[in-house]
Amino acid sequence: MNQSPLVILFAAVLTNNIVFSGFLGMCSFIALSKRIDTAIGMGLAVTFVSTFTTALNWLIYHYILKTGALYKLTGIEGLDGEIFTLIVFIAVIAAFVQIVELAIARISQSLYQALGIFLPLITVNCAILGVSLFMVIRGYGFLASIAFGFGSGIGWLLAIFLMAGIRQKLRFSKISPSLEGIGITMITTGILAMIFMVFNGMVRMN
């Protein structure tokens, strides 16, 4: 359980890649991997959001929601925020995504247009919520949680970057119409997941 943040970072990027071993965040992974530049934009947005929401959620969980934390905070007995964990995590992520959306609209209008509906949809990207929940289940400390959130985001970025390259090359392939798009992306993801098993033995993450 007490692993160095660096090991957790490495494991989250390669060994326990959120896409290839957890199969989380697949909807935006498939929808936005058609072009390399949109893929990188989305990957960076996910990395940013997952890093900061994991940190925020860690603080909120450990100082407010955790059983016994509210008693320490207010001195009133019988208060327990644990059952609100899921709702609060979703609310934090949603609020944070709104901020990111405003920022991207200001900084890069073209990226904002390219990401379109998927930017607000980071809110319901299961990868982000999954990272926050895993962090609680695995009992990471604060630094480890940040490393985990950042690593998972980078892992997602790496996965969508690889897939976008492959899909750009696949535009010249004669894929049968019934497999075009989502079908061939799912098959390729499966093969990539098998290839990523090479990292399995390199580090161990609980």
Partner: peptide, 12 residues
């Protein structure tokens, strides 16, 4: 490895 990508010459 090959046929779903469109056969010889199209595989990744």
């Amino acid at each position: 490895g090959k046929e779903v990508y469109g056969g010889v010459g199209n595989n990744i």
